[in-house]
Design a protein around this nucleic acid. Structure first.
Lengths: 207, 207
DNA sequence: GCCAAAAATAGTACAACGTACTATTTTTGG
DNA sequence: CCAAAAATAGTACGTTGTACTATTTTTGGC
């Protein structure tokens, strides 16, 4: 048995039933090991959650890095967001709201969520600034900080809204929906070239 | 002992510690009654949650009804949203994310959350339409449906974001912050008169 | 004002949970 | 080959939600 096998199965179960409704004994049973053995790999259930969050976080970091290689266009930005949305959908079971996080977070040991948020904000700030410089967006600094606040909240909670009633909604459908909303918001601050880029992205991802 | 006394104390505890971290025994102890007696009033912990949600829901309904008496201006709309934000802050402990709801929701017995969301969407649709008719907003039907989607997500999850790290943030501060974001979003679709109305609201509420 | 019925309160118990602890088996490396 | 380490299993403890029963208190009709 390896950590990765455990995390894979755990994520499946969390996605299916929700973190709160998956027990350590159940996870062990699904893995065909004893509960005692499971705690050998992860002493606390929270540790499983934290490990998954770290997986998710590094996945997003890679997604972001490959975006930063491309030229800054609205189309590329939307593609980035689609990829991130994909990641979020894959890890939707770890979006546990504010009921389980703080225990792990406030003590700042296993997963420093707060600093992740701070970094993410800085990155979006950077992204929007470079989209402005590239002539895709037409906005002032206040607009940027508004967009950053918007995308921080929107990009964090769309998946929660989407899975409130339905733990496994149609992936392409919901991502399409929320990406569409995001594109519309972006278009409100776009130059002509920026709007063109958004439309190009839309055409490319329809047919 | 009355239901209302129990709910009052329960909300206090939920706000302070989070729903998942308040036990039935603890709630009983705080009320100076026995656990057995508590279950006489609320058979399940979920029932406490559902009752609080109903309180919250009717409070919002009243808030909304008094708005509908006023003339449709952006200023009045922002005042409405401030009042709703106030309500949400007061009941922030019941915003438990998608971990505890579904059990009560899917079975559709104690609190039909899904229908609440549907109704709320219809109401916002109505509100934006009448703001358009009143010359406050300048938007087409697609814009309205965008704004409705925006405000549904934003209006649901701002409080979750605000309390992710800090269970009791400064109320006026956070409400000011998120109301400011909302006003900016609204201004993107406002007529001159609408923008004026937003500014009037802002002046009135700064002192 | 009594007294059965109802309401309210208390106490106990059970299954499930997270998890700590110990014992046992298997694998590893000099 | 064999001691050390890693991996696995088993057990047990405290806590949780909650079901159940017993007891006390309140109520309403005669």
């Amino acid at each position: 048995m390896t950590d990765l096998e455990i995390l894979k199965k755990a994520l499946d179960l969390f996605n299916e039933k929700g973190y709160a409704h998956v027990g350590m004994r159940e996870l062990a049973r699904e893995l065909d090991i004893s509960p005692g053995n499971l705690t050998y790999y992860f002493k606390k259930k929270e540790d499983v959650l934290a490990a998954l969050l770290n997986q998710f976080s590094t996945l997003n970091t890679h997604t972001l890095e490959s975006y930063l290689q491309l030229e800054p266009t609205n189309a590329n930005f939307l593609q980035l967001m689609r990829n991130i949305f994909d990641n979020q959908f894959r890890f939707r079971g770890v979006y546990v709201g504010n009921q389980f996080f703080p225990v792990a977070v406030v003590e700042k040991k296993i997963f420093d969520y707060q600093s992740v948020v701070t970094k993410r904000k800085a990155i979006y700030q950077e992204i929007f600034s470079s989209l402005r410089k590239a002539g895709q967006l037409d906005l002032d600094d206040q607009d940027i900080s508004f967009l950053v606040s918007f995308i921080t909240l929107f990009g964090r909670f769309w998946i929660t809204e989407a899975t409130l009633f339905n733990k496994s909604p149609n992936k392409d459908e919901v991502i399409q929906h929320y990406l569409f909303l995001l594109a519309r918001q972006l278009s409100l601050f776009s130059t002509e070239a920026g709007i063109k880029s958004i439309e190009e992205y839309r055409i490319k991802n329809r047919g």
